[in-house]
Simulated scan of single mutants.
Amino acid sequence: MKRFGVAVLLAACSAAHAVGWNYEESVDKMTGKKSASAQTVSDNLLNFDFPYQGKNRGYLPVRQHPQYGLDVLISIDKGQMLCSTYDCKVTIKFDDGPPVRFGGNGPADHSSETIFLQGAGKFIASAKKAKKILVQFNAFKNGSPVLEFSTPQSLDWPRK
């Protein structure tokens, strides 16, 4: 499955909180081919109950990987994003547009901090025009929090 490398990608996202999209390119060691990513970090922190209290930021990476293809992810530092195999929905609002529902999938390692969005192309088309992106998901015993991403420069994808 195409879920490998999430931890590496998120580590790059969390290195420093900067507003907007940050871009990276690397070479996949297995294939020798180029991998590209863009990521942004949430403006807000989530306030979850025990045992997930404390700093909890959201991440919104887009990646093109030679082995796994094109992916858009929603991720948090800690907590449980509810994404069962039969009903996983994420609501996303681009600027002042209407909220849009996306399906999702959990990662192959069954960790609960990441959701892979279905419809990466649809997301990217909207993100290429957006200056603000809101993401709402279901969290175990913590309702449906909203992550806020400021993107003063719209997503440049594929990177030119």
Rank of each mutant, 00 (worst) to 15 (best):
K2S: 14
R3L: 14
V6L: 06
V6E: 04
A7I: 13
A12S: 10
C13L: 10
A15H: 04
A16N: 03
H17F: 09
G20N: 12
G20K: 09
G20H: 07
E24M: 08
D28N: 00
M30C: 05
T31N: 11
G32T: 03
S37W: 13
A38R: 01
Q39D: 12
S42M: 07
S42W: 11
D43R: 06
L46A: 10
N47W: 05
F48P: 09
F48D: 05
D49P: 05
Q53I: 10
N56W: 11
N56G: 02
R57G: 05
G58I: 05
G58M: 06
Y59M: 03
L60H: 07
R63T: 07
Q64Y: 02
Q64V: 04
Q64S: 01
Q64E: 05
P66N: 04
Y68I: 03
D71G: 07
S75D: 15
D77K: 00
K78G: 03
K78F: 04
Q80W: 12
Q80S: 02
L82I: 08
L82G: 06
T85I: 13
C88F: 06
T91H: 01
K93L: 12
D95T: 02
D96L: 12
D96M: 08
G97Y: 15
V100L: 11
R101P: 07
R101D: 15
G103W: 09
N105M: 15
P107E: 04
A108Q: 05
H110C: 07
S111C: 09
S112D: 13
E113V: 15
T114G: 01
T114R: 02
L117Q: 00
G119C: 14
A120L: 04
G121K: 03
F123S: 00
A125D: 13
A130R: 00
K131Q: 10
K131L: 05
L134M: 10
V135G: 01
A139R: 01
K141A: 10
S144V: 02
E148L: 07
F149I: 05
S150T: 11
T151A: 04
S154Y: 12
L155Y: 08
P158F: 10
K160F: 14
